[in-house]
Design a protein around this nucleic acid. Structure first.
Lengths: 209, 209
DNA sequence: TTAAACTTGTACCTTTTGACACAAGTGGCT
DNA sequence: AGCCACTTGTGTCAAAAGGTACAAGTTTAA
């Protein structure tokens, strides 16, 4: 199955006309690890749909970062879609975490097709809904949860995402994900370890419960 | 001009067929002050578009709240639209702050029309975009700004919204808006007062700069 | 006009989070 | 083995934020 066929299948695209458009306008691209797909405050010219690989989306300040979400193949394949409907700057950064294959659609078609083709409309709408709800949950967590909870939540969701109770990450990186500092993370992890909730190894965190 | 005509004008609805649908399915309602439009964890059956008045949208925990946004007449007229495309529970609360006139559309039409009528499509899409970007900015503020900054930001945006440098609000209410406690707000405001940035009166805060 | 309810100001203390500093551990690499 | 860069552990301190308590001011309404 070609990447385009995977895309059609993943998004339930049945309209032949739309398939033709996508084949004509979409650009298949394999991007190496650690490449920026979108940069904060830069203009967005493409909508990138991830076919395989993994993309990290975050916001940053001068000195601090906070993870927004990861973009995984097909099922969660929207990258700051909101920015594509208007000619505006990206509010986020997005970078590949591993080698990633994407299909890029020029932004002007994204909104055009969303009115012309039912399946594209469903795709864009659903993407918005999911992203919005996701963000709403993150917002609530940020507002109401303490950092130690957010750390363990992060670890659990990573474990889930990778289907493994071992998370390979340094304390520094973890600190960036949840928007705090390395020392705070080290202390929180030590606490969880003494509570037998995690086991710590070099650049490895194992979830015990 | 009737409320429906205001709606058509505000959303640039030109399709006669869509106007007919809205007149047929939409319900005009005037809601008194302090009435819930949407409740967290309850199912959403209607999309409410504000014609006049003011609606506050927030999230809450057991003991704490945090403001998400206000819904003002027409120009910002979307209420948790994301929830209307699927039969799902609301993640937020929404309550009128003053007497408010709304037009309610049953949720099943909201997504249906968004594919049938260009102007409705634009309306729903734009609502998503604006809400999403808004939330993203709030998220960033929450992640990176200290509470005293968020307090002054809140005051400035209120001043803007109401076109007045005097904000009528109690410290307790202000604390709820920004997700903290009354004492913290009192101390922050006193600090800003001694810095000649605000002037405090009973249930009134005047912005000086 | 007086009591009750609510609002504001603050002192004191605790907890949470962050900053700095440094020791110790780990994993290559030569 | 020895060196280097990076990672982890932790103690100390400071700042930010929250909790408790109470005094004093304001509004409302009986």
């Amino acid at each position: 199955m070609t990447e385009f066929e995977q895309l059609f299948k993943g998004l339930n695209i049945v309209e032949e006309k739309l398939k033709e458009h996508i084949l004509k306008e979409g650009i298949l691209q394999t991007v190496p690890k650690d490449t920026f797909i979108v940069e904060q405050d830069k203009y967005i010219k493409w909508l990138a749909i991830v076919i395989s690989g993994k993309v990290r989306v975050w916001q940053e300040n001068e000195d601090r970062q906070i993870l927004l979400y990861y973009v995984n193949p097909i099922q969660t394949c929207v990258l700051s879609l909101s920015a594509t409907f208007r000619d505006c700057k990206s509010l986020v950064h997005a970078k590949t975490e591993i080698e990633t294959t994407i299909i890029k659609i020029p932004v002007r078609f994204v909104s055009e097709w969303s009115f012309t083709f039912k399946s594209w409309n469903t795709f864009t709408t659903n993407s918005f809904i999911i992203s919005y709800e996701d963000l709403l949950l993150s917002y609530k967590d940020l507002a109401f949860k303490k950092i130690n909870e957010r750390v363990i939540d992060y670890l659990r969701s990573e474990a889930n995402r990778n289907n493994s109770s071992i998370i390979h990450i340094s304390h520094q990186q973890l600190a960036k994900e949840v928007g705090t500092t390395r020392e705070v993370v080290s202390k929180i992890l030590k606490q969880y370890e003494s509570d037998r909730i995690v086991k710590l190894q070099f650049k490895k965190i194992e979830l015990l419960s």
